[in-house]
Amino acid sequence: MATSVEEITVNRQFDGYNRRYKHRSSVLGCDMTFTVYFPAAAEKGKVPVLYYLSGLTCTDENFIQKSGAQRMAAARGVALVAPDTSPRGLGVEGEADSWDFGVGAGFYVNATQEKWRAWRMYDYVVEELPALLRTASPFASSLDPDRASIFGHSMGGHGALIVGLKNPQSYRSISAFAPICNPTNVPWGVKAFTGYLGEDKEAWKQYDACELMRGFAGDVKPPILVDTGSADKFLEVQLQPQALEGAIKDSGYSPATLRMQEGYDHSYFFISTFIDDHINFHADALLVGHEA
């Protein structure tokens, strides 16, 4: 039986609609929200899906309200799907003690530590949400989750990279803004992985884009685009794009493009500047054989 979905808000934009939904997540054990931007093309037939994963402290609304992505998504006929970043409302002790762990900081992993057993954002993004888009009545006639790509920012850029690299058959393209490239070796990642996954560092590697890149053995290689700002205050300590660049070189993965954008920081001012590049990058992959 299809999961019940409740529409919370709707806002018209560029002849399409931003629609925010709430549903009960069986994977996470709580109510979850997510937002879908339906371009006008979705009124005439199924359109491809571009998932966006947000960063630390964010909800599904940050990207939808600040990025300006809808203009190009409308022009290219691509739906945007923005989930939340963690379970909420479970009342786990310590879940809101810090901004970089717990609520708003799911890191797109499946937690193995008992206390954090509900933090299974990887399964939510990879399995539950796409299944919902396939079956629930608001989406079944307008979205085509079998044509999907994924991108994100910071923690969400890390999420997009690992989800795409672990499931290359499911995503036609992958991109990221200022991703946490090598989480097993930076403070944000070490804190999150220790808490969610325990002390076994070998278990962390399955959620590290650099490790996944070096071990990539798939026949299908989705194209990758990564943008990072040279003035990003987290660049050297937390993001380490040079680690991902090295892993790409070591693996011979192609095509992959890493760009350093001079003078840009970690904010949505940066994201909004280059969002059209990313939407077009994904649309080119998603619409092959479908554009007039």
Rank of each mutant, 00 (worst) to 15 (best):
A160H: 01
A40M: 09
D60G: 11
Q70Y: 14
W119E: 14
A42G: 07
F107T: 04
D123C: 07
Y124G: 03
A131F: 04
Y108M: 11
H158A: 08
E43V: 03
R117E: 07
G68Q: 00
P138G: 09
S154W: 00
R71D: 02
I150L: 07
S142W: 02
A111P: 03
G157H: 00
P83A: 12
L80A: 05
E127I: 07
R147Y: 03
V47F: 11
E61A: 13
M155D: 00
P145Q: 05
Q70C: 15
Q65E: 15
A136I: 09
V78D: 02
S141D: 11
E128P: 15
A74K: 02
G68I: 01
N110E: 07
A105N: 11
L132H: 13
Q65K: 10
N110P: 06
G89K: 07
A140E: 08
T57M: 15
E127C: 09
Y108F: 14
F139A: 09
L50F: 09
Q70P: 12
A41Q: 15
L133Y: 06
V36C: 15
A82P: 02
G55M: 14
A111V: 02
D144V: 06
A75K: 15
G68F: 01
D146R: 09
G159D: 03
L129M: 08
F101Q: 12
G159S: 01
A105D: 13
S154I: 01
L132Q: 13
G45W: 14
L165P: 13
D97R: 05
D144C: 07
F38E: 03
A41F: 10
S98H: 09
L165I: 14
W116I: 10
Y37V: 04
M121T: 08
L80S: 04
L143E: 07
F107L: 11
A140V: 14
Y52T: 03
V81S: 14
K115N: 05
E127G: 12
A82Q: 08
D84W: 00
E95A: 09
A160R: 00
S86P: 13
S142A: 10
S86V: 13
G152K: 00
T112C: 05
G77L: 10
G164E: 01
H153T: 03
R120A: 12
G45M: 12
G164T: 01
G159K: 00
V163E: 14
A118M: 10
G164F: 04
T112I: 06
E95S: 12
L133K: 06
Q65A: 10
P87C: 05
R147P: 00
V125G: 08
F63G: 09
G91M: 02
S98N: 11
M72E: 13
A75W: 13
R120P: 06
G157C: 01
V81F: 12
T85Q: 15
N110W: 08
L53Y: 04
H153L: 05
L90T: 06
L80G: 10
N110V: 03
F139D: 15
D84G: 12
D144Y: 06
D146Y: 11
S54V: 02
E61P: 08
V109H: 02
P145K: 01
L133G: 01
L90K: 06
K66V: 04
F38T: 07
G45C: 13
L56F: 11
Y37H: 10
S142K: 11
P138E: 06
H158Y: 05
W99P: 00
